[in-house]
């Protein structure tokens, strides 16, 4: 199978992606779609009369602080609006799509993190009441069963957050890393569609597109080149490969036939060998992930 991560930005207009998934499915290639949608989450929070809250982490990354109200809005926007509307869009294109969030069947599960370290007005703080989590397990059998029956799973956060007291609650999770976890668990190739053609050695010079990475050294070059938003994509790619994915494609969501083009190597392709042979296990790989502010 192939896992395809599409954006969830303003009015998800994945027309290109929907057509490609339909083509792949028609070719008998099983596909799992994963989507995000942080902009629609922000809009929903505002429409509900609240303010989206972003905080800066100790390492300088800006992330959403997801309190209980924001979590409710998140679930409404992501598992409700976006997942359902996207599933309908795929079905309209003839794809037998089944929408799932990470809570369903414990598809994406892991410990809830109810506290985060932030920096506010120069002060280091711990903010409590956070609803996010770290995906530690994927219900690959659920996906395999659906794929075997000809369905195309359309997956999104929230994930299933487990509490220390045995509680279970939906929590926020990054869609790129969710896609990476799914690709790793299925041993599938991963296509990460994004709004640029791929990873550039020099983001300001369009001729410096890095076409592929096959060695740990190549990967390191990519990690150094990837800034901010792209850094998150590269981190997800590394996690997918370390988790068992064979190959990761980072490519342009706005190209014609974006997924087919990506699979043809139009963007940046990172091979399994870029993480193979490195003695660092996945965790170390994460720590070396210096995400530049």
């Amino acid at each position: 199978p192939v896992v395809v991560k599409i954006g969830g930005a303003k009015a998800v207009d994945p027309a290109g992606a929907v057509g490609d998934v339909a083509a792949l499915a028609a070719d008998g290639r099983s596909v799992v779609v994963v989507h995000g949608g942080s902009t629609v989450v922000d809009e929903t929070i505002e429409r509900l009369g609240m303010e989206p809250e972003y905080v800066e982490s100790a390492s300088g990354v800006t992330g959403r602080f997801t309190d209980a109200d924001a979590m409710e809005a998140f679930t409404m926007a992501m598992a409700g609006k976006l997942n359902t509307e996207l599933t309908a869009l795929f079905r309209e294109a003839g794809v037998d799509a089944v929408g799932l969030s990470g809570v369903d069947g414990g598809l994406l599960s892991g410990p809830r993190k109810s506290a985060v370290r932030v920096v506010e007005d120069g002060k280091r703080k711990i903010r409590r009441g956070e609803h996010s989590g770290k995906i530690e397990s994927v219900n690959a059998d659920l996906l395999a069963g659906l794929l075997a029956d000809g369905y195309t799973p359309v997956v999104s956060p929230p994930m299933e957050g487990t509490e220390s007291d045995g509680g279970v609650t939906p929590v926020n999770a990054d869609a790129d890393r969710a896609a990476a976890a799914v690709a790793g668990a299925l041993g599938a190739d991963l296509v990460l569609l994004t709004d640029v053609a791929g990873v550039y050695a020099d983001p300001d010079d369009p001729d410096t597109l890095i076409e592929s990475a096959a060695t740990p050294a190549d990967l390191e070059a990519i990690e150094d080149a990837a800034e901010g938003f792209m850094g998150k994509k590269v981190m997800a790619a590394t996690e997918a490969l370390s988790g068992g994915s064979g190959r990761v494609f980072i490519a342009d969501a706005n190209a014609t036939d974006p997924i087919l083009a990506a699979l043809d190597g139009s963007g940046t392709t990172i091979e399994q060998s870029a993480v193979d042979g490195t003695d660092e296990d996945a965790e170390d790989a994460e720590e070396t992930e210096a995400v530049d502010a």
């Binding site: 969830g8 942080s38 390492s59 993190k113 506290a115 985060v116 370290r117 711990i126 956060p157 990054d174």
Partner: peptide, 11 residues
Amino acid sequence: EAPELEEDWGE
């Protein structure tokens, strides 16, 4: 004592 906390930002 402040807890050790990994960074796992969501969407």
